[in-house]
Design a protein around this nucleic acid. Sequence first.
DNA 1: TCCCTTGTAGAAGGCAAAGTGTACATGTAG
DNA 2: CTACATGTACACTTTGCCTTCTACAAGGGA
Lengths: 201, 201
Amino acid sequence: MGDVEQDDGQVVAAQPIRRLRRAERREQILDAATRAFARAGYNATGLDDIADEAELTRAMLYRHFDSKADLYRAVLDRACVRLEEATGADDFDDSAIPALLRAAAADPDGFRLLFRHAAREPDFRELIDSITAASREVAHRNLARRIPAGPWLDWAATLIPAFTLEAVIAWLDAGQPDPDQAAARISQAVRGVMAAAHASH
Amino acid sequence: MGDVEQDDGQVVAAQPIRRLRRAERREQILDAATRAFARAGYNATGLDDIADEAELTRAMLYRHFDSKADLYRAVLDRACVRLEEATGADDFDDSAIPALLRAAAADPDGFRLLFRHAAREPDFRELIDSITAASREVAHRNLARRIPAGPWLDWAATLIPAFTLEAVIAWLDAGQPDPDQAAARISQAVRGVMAAAHASH
DNA sequence: TCCCTTGTAGAAGGCAAAGTGTACATGTAG
DNA sequence: CTACATGTACACTTTGCCTTCTACAAGGGA
């Protein structure tokens, strides 16, 4: 029976127990964990929070993942894979920003989790560092055609990818208005930052 | 005696025990804690890490601070106060960015700690939120003269302060080259972002 | 119908790190 | 001189939370 005896002794009809196949349940847990972790990051999120979010018991989490860290890695990995699928090889051409917006809109919790939390967590940031390092490389190559080598080139190559991510997250926070306009505005803003970076002051 | 018997039985001259008055020692602990926390944030930094950094024992930390959280708050408070002193009322006029650069250069660990770590830590972000909220307010007011109310105004008002901080931190990471040029470049970049935000697309 | 898998509920274990206590050493103010 | 605040050293307790274990319930395919 799915019935439940409450504190006051009343017996009420509870939700019939939903049974899913392993793969489905796993995905559902990953979805819930992504939402839960996205709120406060790894440390501040207890397994109970995740279990509640997934409407499951803590025990079930351990039937699908070896540990909290394992679950977190699975969450981050999935978010990374989705991001890479959505953005392609990330060549930083004009199609990159619309692709990034699509990816963020398709999985906003995962996106925020990756760049707002995981990027600052010592035990996990390596996963994200590979992405940001690659972006910096690409930006560095592209900017090197206009900006002479030196600290300002390094500065711009670090700043522009970081700025782009901030702009995308701010767009999510603003309610995802008009993706096409967003892409145009962010692209223009990036050009503005580039201009400032290679101006002679 | 400041001498110390080592594992191998040898007795060597140790550092003479440095005794400081309470206020001095407190400041020294805050300095060390700022450095230690700045590396990895609150959770990933143990009291032993801080004690090592300060060249003291854990017990001493408790003579100056009630708890780890108390110490962290003291560190953040001091960083906030220094920041506010260095930037003045933060009116976001043209003097704001040079002031921000001065503040960051004067206390780079504190600056990074505030905006890279504390801003994402649920138990402590309230301290930083007041700063970022105020910046957003100011930006919102200034931008409202050019950008019609709506999601794009909100987007720009969130993004521009965040971008400015990213730019300052990237400048720290690049080795703090030429503060005057940095201010000019960041100001120009901000104008570029503003232009993109209020363009009609 | 039978039985395996998925599921609940909750107690108990274990471990890392915070927090406390005690004993003792020593520079410095009074 | 001497008393106290500052300091070391280190063992101990507490706590929070991950992790494991046990006992039982129930859906659903063979």
